[in-house]
Amino acid sequence: MVVELEQRNNNQPPPKNQNTIKTFINHSSNFGEMSEFKIALKHSIPIVLGYLPVSMAFGVIAANYIGSNSVLMSALVFAGASQFAALQLFILSSSAIFIVFTTFLINLRHILMSSFLNTYHKNLGKLKKVAIAFGITDETFAIASNGLKDLTRDLESSNAPNTSNTSNASKESKASFSPFKYQFTLNSVSYLSWVSGTFLGFVAGSMIPEEILNVLPFTLTALFLYLLVINISEKRDVGVALIAGAISVMLAGIAIGWNIFIATLVACFVGSEIERKIGG
């Protein structure tokens, strides 16, 4: 799997536009050549690589305790941390109410992610919002928040220079990029890998050698680290990241899911207070 990843990495087609190759995401946001579908498909590869081993592990373990309900859980809940927690509670014969309530607490953090992503999707119709909301996870948020930022910024910058015929050009290219198509494709591919991974784990047990299965989930950690680094643009971002990381680590053992929620809120609050004091 790891070798495969390297080959895929090397097999990237040579960049046609030298200006847009700074990051993979920037490189991909070449609208003339690639549709939202293809861009999202490429962006989803790290998620798929991270999801498959984790969901397979979930399927392997869950099959012993809740049978085919393990696949149902992945298909309906689609939230990794809470699924493992719920499985643990099923094994411990916890009450139904407690399992549901714990799930709610763990997944409450998505409220922050949906709030943020809604800034890109606020003009969508109800059905489309309902559809993409289902697929908001830590990982799809991570990729989409960054991908949408780059894709919309590229649009603005590519529209900015030619002031003579701005209105027509900007209308055309604005219409040519659909945040919905991008988000929906990204969510769908991630979802399919999560559910099919669970199914594979459920029916076939562990087929990947354990030593590889053990390190592949680190894909997701590395993905978060990459996104953290490229999102830091000023000193106060570093401060916000340090505060969030410290609180998250301290609370991780106590309250799964909540550590992320509380850490994010406190760090964002401190960041905005600093900004207000010294001026943004």
Binding site: L112, F116, F141, F224, L227, A244, T264
Partner: peptide
């Protein structure tokens, strides 16, 4: 209008950090 709240712009950095760090260290 969530964009009115200034702290929204810090959400990605804060979330990525709080997601990654517990994978690297525990108490």
């Amino acid at each position: 209008d969530v964009q009115r709240y200034i702290f929204l712009k810090f959400i990605p950095v804060a979330i990525f950090s709080s997601l990654a760090m517990p994978d690297l260290m525990g108490v």
